[in-house]
Each structure stands twice: as structure tokens, then as C-alpha cells.
């Protein structure tokens, strides 16, 4: 399956999706030392973001989030790409700070089109993601 979107920072990566049904923030929702999801009570609690493709509806803000994303990348536990329905400015800033591809503007809700564990290739050259199921 191929899904078209809009690239906001370029790159090409392949990896597994981690799909959130609720807005995500690098502050409070993940541990930047271990890369694990810390949203208590959420089904993804305890999952790792390391080398994953982060799929989110949008962000929950937090101006200091780009520093936290950087910290996570230094510890080798950051996601490798971000796909979101609406890239709010803080999520965009996080992706640019750690220079990973980010896309938004998909025709349908990306958090419903994909499920956690999907093998994806994000290629911003053709503004597409390829899903291998």
C-alpha cells in the first residue's frame, strides 16, 4: 500500500510504526533516557520509540520538547521519522532539531490507516510512504 502526504523535512527511512491515537509530546509522554512510552494507562505504555516511525494525530505542545527530542537522539532512543495528521509547530521543530523526516497532510487519518508494527518506508522524495504488510 502506498499513502501520499506532504513532506516538511526530507529523508528516507525504513522501520516499524508506533501509532498513537492521542496527541503526543516529547515532554512527559516518553523517557528521553530509555525511549520508552511513559503515558500511564495508555496501551503503548512501556513500548520503545527507539528506531520507530512515530505516527501521531498531533502534539500536546511544550516549548522545551525540541531539547528533549535532541536528548533522546543523543541516547540513540529517538524515533527515525514522524508522520502526523497536522504537524503543529512544536512537532515540526522537534523533527528539524534532530533532522528526521516528517510528513503530514495525508488524505485520511494516518493514525487509522496504520497500525503499530506495520513495516514502513518513508520517502520524502516522492512524498510517499510505502506500507509492507
Amino acid at each position: 500500500m502506498r499513502i501520499k502526504g506532504k513532506s516538511l523535512n526530507n529523508g528516507k527511512v525504513r522501520g516499524k510504526a508506533l501509532v498513537f491515537d492521542v496527541p503526543f509530546s516529547f515532554i512527559g509522554d516518553m523517557c528521553p533516557d530509555t525511549g520508552t512510552v511513559t503515558m500511564s494507562g495508555h496501551p503503548l505504555f512501556g513500548e520503545s520509540l527507539k528506531d520507530k516511525i512515530l505516527v501521531i494525530p498531533t502534539s500536546r505542545g511544550g516549548t522545551i520538547a525540541p531539547f528533549i527530542a535532541y536528548h533522546a537522539q543523543k541516547n540513540n532512543v529517538a524515533p527515525t521519522a514522524i508522520l502526523c495528521n497536522n504537524a503543529d509547530t512544536i512537532t515540526l521543530e522537534c523533527a528539524l532539531t534532530i533532522d528526521i523526516p516528517i510528513m503530514d497532510g495525508f488524505e485520511e487519518d494516518i493514525t487509522r490507516l496504520l497500525v503499530s508494527g506495520d513495516e514502513l518506508e518513508v520517502n520524502t522524495n516522492n512524498n510517499c510512504i510505502e506500507v509492507f504488510r
Partner: peptide, 8 residues
């Protein structure tokens, strides 16, 4: 603007 810490 209400930028984040890196843009700022």
C-alpha cells in the same frame, strides 16, 4: 511568536 526552545 510562541516558538519552541530551538527556533527561539
Amino acid at each position: 511568536n510562541k516558538d519552541g526552545t530551538v527556533i527561539n
